[in-house]
């Protein structure tokens, strides 16, 4: 498992692609918003939690199809399915690798982008915390979607259509957590719900993803 995780991280670093690309995409989306809604600080500050969460979510979506597609094309998945590691561990590990290369950098970069959007000071800690708690769920759900579409020639668009509805609860609770943090309201409920979704996804979806991969390999 460690071997797989290290290999995936090495691949992400060497290829450069997924890692930096998601961050750059996140930055561009955030920069584009003020051009769309106007430079007024009050408006931007109010919509900042939502924009940052939607931006992180889209940036996460961008690299999902790479989770399994490359390994499927070069035959690694076939070999992995006959290896001593259960496929459930493989899917969970690859989701973890995806989070480390996408979710974690996004979480760390979000406060800087919060400055660009005039996010009120009270929101920064909640933004980081909610993203840290919520983005693992995005990676795991995304890995499930990628497992469903791995055998398809042009699965990218379909993957978004399948995964985005599944992202709705995470987005709602995540953005609401930041909004409440900004307004000084209690944030326990959305944060706990976010944690629940993450833990539930991590507990159940590796099995669903592994089942989908087995179906796709046969």
């Amino acid at each position: 498992m460690t071997a797989l995780l290290l290999r995936d991280l090495t691949l992400a670093l060497r290829a450069g692609g997924g890692f930096g690309l998601s961050l750059a995409f996140f930055l561009i989306v955030t920069v584009l918003v003020p051009f769309g809604v106007g430079p007024e600080g009050g408006v931007l500050g109010r919509i900042a939690p939502g924009i940052l969460w939607v931006g992180a979510l889209l940036a996460c979506l961008l690299s999902l199809d790479r989770i399994f597609a490359l390994d499927y094309e070069d035959g690694t998945l076939d070999l992995m399915a006959t290896a001593p590691i259960p496929l459930e561990t493989v899917t969970a590990t690859k989701a973890l690798a995806h989070w480390l290369t996408t979710g974690l950098p996004l979480t760390l970069a979000a406060p800087a982008l919060g400055v660009l959007l005039n996010l009120p000071t009270a929101g920064f800690s909640w933004l980081t915390l909610s993203l840290a708690v919520g983005t693992p769920a995005l990676s795991m759900i995304g890995a499930f979607g990628a497992a469903l579409t791995v055998g398809l020639k042009r699965g990218g668009l379909l993957l978004s259509l399948l995964v985005l509805p599944l992202y709705i609860p995470t987005l709602i609770f995540g953005a609401d957590c930041v909004r409440r943090g900004v307004e000084g309201l209690p944030t326990t409920t959305p944060l706990l719900m976010l944690l629940g979704i993450t833990l539930g996804s991590v507990a159940i979806l590796p099995f669903a993803a592994a089942a989908a991969i087995r179906v796709n390999l046969r």
């Binding site: 290999r7 691949l11 060497r14 290829a15 390994d71 094309e73 070069d74 035959g75 690694t76 076939d78």
Partner: peptide, 11 residues
């Protein structure tokens, strides 16, 4: 061992 070797080209 199938038709594809499962080799990562960057490694």
């Amino acid at each position: 061992a199938g038709h594809a070797d499962g080799i990562k080209s960057t490694l």
